[in-house]
Amino acid sequence: IGMSGLLVKSTVIMKENLEELNRRGMATDYPVILGGAALTRAYVEQDLHEIYQGEVRYARDAFEGLRLMDALVAVKRGIPGAVLPELKQRRVARRTPVLPEPEEDAAPVRSDVATDVPIPTAPFLGTRVVKGIPLREYAGWLDEDALFKGQWGLKASRTDGGPGYEDLVESQGRPRLRGLLDRLHTDNLLEAAVVYGYFPCHSEGNDLVILDEDGKERTRFTFPRQRRGRHLCLADFFRPAESGETDIVALQTVTIGPRASGATAELFAADAYRDYLELHGLSVQLAEALAEYWHARVRTELGIAD
């Protein structure tokens, strides 16, 4: 079995797969070759090898994968002298790091963020649902670079005289974008909606405490604090509980609806991978655009748009 991991999350899935093969009693029958950008040889041949009850090896590229396959087949056929390559040993023995005890005054309970900024007035408390937001309202917030570079993979040619990035944007990116936006509109694939609201709150150390209208705790979010510099934490940007003042926080979640997801799933099922990637990438970035658009509206409603 071969598995290739591009993202860090892939390494977690690979580990789970190996554990599942163990659980099903299949490990001794199925050697595993792992590779991809997210992996290192030491992680595979030490950490994962300790977990897996069969053979597991790391392949840096396809050529090493082929050599491993040859070795595995030779061992299975009992060819004299056939062996698998040695597992890579760590140069430095793994050990659990011992972290120093933090000094009591090493990090402040609160940073130097100002606490005298006027608290904005919320237009309402609680949540509201807004549906049917027209594409024209949030399309202008679309991040074209994130779409063309990150989602669609447009890159300048490496050869002399080849098209540059801006040339590709004009000749390929924007024409395809206009075509897809037209399709999303004419096929009625967008159901943009927002749930948002304003809630009373205050901060306690690294926690942002969300309150109900009676001032009782509803829930809380715990945020990390910088270990260096100003020791900033998101909770610092809201009034501390000891101030006796109640602050306000806006929360939102957005969607462009299930129809776009259904259309991308159909393209994937039809093996139309390029069309799938383009429509999926645009859907992702339109959701981001909707979030930015609504965030701007929230700032206007709070009177802090400037």
Rank of each mutant, 00 (worst) to 15 (best):
A260T: 08
G35V: 06
G140I: 04
T219V: 08
D47L: 06
E242D: 14
D247I: 07
E166Y: 05
R24A: 08
Q226P: 00
V92Y: 09
I304H: 08
N188P: 09
A37Y: 11
E20H: 09
R128T: 07
D275M: 05
E55M: 07
L189V: 08
D29T: 08
L251T: 05
E266Y: 00
D214T: 14
V284I: 12
P163G: 06
R91T: 06
E245I: 00
G150W: 14
F238W: 05
A272Q: 13
L6A: 05
D214V: 07
G215E: 05
A42L: 13
D116K: 12
A250Y: 05
P120Y: 06
L99H: 10
G78F: 03
R41C: 04
A235R: 04
V109I: 11
P134Y: 15
I210A: 07
D112E: 14
Q285G: 00
L39N: 01
R178T: 12
L181P: 10
Y30R: 12
P134Q: 15
I133S: 03
I133K: 05
I248S: 10
G229M: 08
V194M: 01
E204D: 15
E144Q: 14
G132I: 10
E278F: 14
Y165Q: 07
D182S: 11
I210H: 06
Q252D: 11
R218I: 01
E55Y: 09
T219M: 10
K15N: 06
R94Y: 12
L142W: 06
G244F: 10
E55A: 10
R297W: 03
V194K: 06
R228F: 15
M3H: 09
R176I: 12
Y273H: 13
A270Y: 01
D116V: 15
E245R: 02
L135W: 01
D275L: 06
C201Y: 03
N22F: 07
W141G: 02
P120K: 00
V109Q: 15
G36S: 07
